[in-house]
Each structure stands twice: as structure tokens, then as C-alpha cells.
């Protein structure tokens, strides 16, 4: 599998570290339902069989966190952007 790193170009996936679902965002810790929201954030996943937005870190490259859109059924990669720049929304 090759990840199209916006900085480095298409690179072998073994250069990257994988984190997981990029559609979850860290909740407001001050909110009254924070514990519930953090539980959901830390533990529950859509785990789709299809398109999945996910975090990859170019550990042996430019050290950038990427949001990669990939199909979990075919492994087809539909795009990658810098996590820093992307609007992380569900």
C-alpha cells in the first residue's frame, strides 16, 4: 500500500504509523457531559466497511500527520491531506 504524502509523494505504507479514525474530535473538557463525550471519543468507532477517514503519521519521512481517505474494503486510497490543514469534521 502506498500513501500519497502531500509533502513526500507516494511512499510505502511501512514508513507511516497508523492511528485510526479521523472523524472523531476531542470534545470540550469543560462541557457538563464531558465524561460521556470523552468516552465516546476515546472508545466508540463507526468502523465502516467502505470509505474511512483516518490518521497516518509519516514517521520515517516528513513527520506530518495526514488525514487519508481510504476504502477499508478495497484499500483504495481516495486522497490524503495534512491533518493540520484539514477541517476535521465527521
Amino acid at each position: 500500500m502506498r500513501i500519497p504524502c502531500p509533502y513526500c509523494g507516494a511512499r510505502d505504507a511501512h514508513e507511516f504509523a497508523y492511528l485510526g479514525d479521523a472523524t472523531v474530535s476531542r470534545p470540550d473538557p469543560a462541557a457538563p457531559d464531558a465524561e460521556d463525550a470523552f468516552f465516546t471519543y476515546a472508545y466508540l468507532r463507526d468502523n465502516p466497511d467502505g470509505e474511512h477517514r483516518e490518521y497516518w503519521y509519516h514517521a520515517n519521512g516528513c513527520r506530518q500527520w495526514l488525514v487519508v481517505t481510504r476504502n477499508t474494503r478495497t484499500h483504495e486510497i481516495l486522497g490524503a491531506s495534512l491533518a493540520r490543514a484539514s477541517e476535521v469534521t465527521a
Binding site: 505504507a13 485510526g20 474511512h52 477499508t72
Partner: peptide
Amino acid sequence: YNSYAQRGNMP
């Protein structure tokens, strides 16, 4: 990495 493909890669 998340996968439903029932196969893996070379690394």
C-alpha cells in the same frame, strides 16, 4: 490499519 479486505500487505 482498518480493513475489511481479508488480506494484507508486504511490510
